[in-house]
């Protein structure tokens, strides 16, 4: 398991490095009031959410599309490693960037004065939602392989049912986490660029991470039950 995990980390070292370096760079920048943060309100406002939030997600999407393109599960399934270990290695690789960045952002919120890191609270809302979405999509895909019935329509039905349940539960979590999620960010409406963006402040976005982690753990067990490792 560790060998596979290390290989994945080495293979994707550049995007992973960027994922972990971005929050650090912006923390240093914020603490020093450099990078025009103080002078340019726009930069101060959107750098965190665009670079750290969406940037992290974009890089994770790149990593997972590449894994899919190179049929990584097939490479690993041929090795003398138990499917349980494969599933755990895959799970750690999938969730750790989200959880590490999320945890780091929460730490910042606790220890750094708000003036330097305004709007940082949005990042975990974004990251959490995206983590939840990715876990749900992966669970649906693995269920497709695990629920291999002789009848195609039965398989389609059950996978559809699982996907629908995931979507509904995901939206439920989002609703619980922030009632203002689809409200413009300011009453004037001139800043509604990121409409689907929770502006939570009381730490409700942790729910996204919790629910995303729950789904990813279910996904871990479903992965072990896959009937095929060809895709």
């Amino acid at each position: 398991m560790l060998k596979i995990l290390m290989a994945e980390i080495k293979y994707f070292k550049l995007p992973l490095l960027v994922i972990f370096a971005l929050p650090l760079i912006f923390t240093v920048a914020a603490l020093n009031d450099i990078l025009l943060f103080e002078q340019v309100y726009f930069l101060k406002k959107y750098f965190w959410s665009v670079f750290v939030g969406l940037g992290t997600y974009a890089l994770i999407i790149i990593i997972w599309s590449l894994r899919k393109k190179e049929i990584r599960e097939r490479v690993h399934a041929a090795l003398p490693v138990s499917v349980g270990k494969l599933a755990v290695g895959r799970w750690i690789f999938a969730v750790s960037p989200f959880l590490i960045v999320g945890f780091y952002v929460e730490l910042l919120r606790c220890f750094i004065p708000v003036r330097q890191i305004i709007f940082i609270d949005r990042i975990n809302g974004q990251l959490g939602m995206l983590f939840l979405a990715l876990a749900a999509v992966d669970l649906a895909m693995n269920s497709w392989s695990a629920l291999e019935f002789k009848r195609y329509d039965k398989r389609l039905f059950f996978t559809g049912l699982i996907s629908a349940a995931l979507l509904i539960s995901g939206f439920g979590v989002i609703y619980l986490a922030s009632a203002s999620i689809i409200q413009p960010l300011s009453p004037s409406g001139d800043e509604n660029i990121f409409l689907i963006q929770p502006q939570t402040s009381g730490g409700e976005e942790i729910l996204f991470f919790v629910w995303g982690t729950v789904l990813s753990v279910i996904d871990l067990f479903v992965f072990k039950k896959r009937k095929s490792f060809l895709t």
Binding site: R74, A77, A78, R226, K227, S228, F229, L230
Partner: peptide, 9 residues
């Protein structure tokens, strides 16, 4: 062969 090697069950 894929059944034999565990790539499919």
């Amino acid at each position: 062969m894929q059944c034999m090697t565990g790539l499919i069950r």
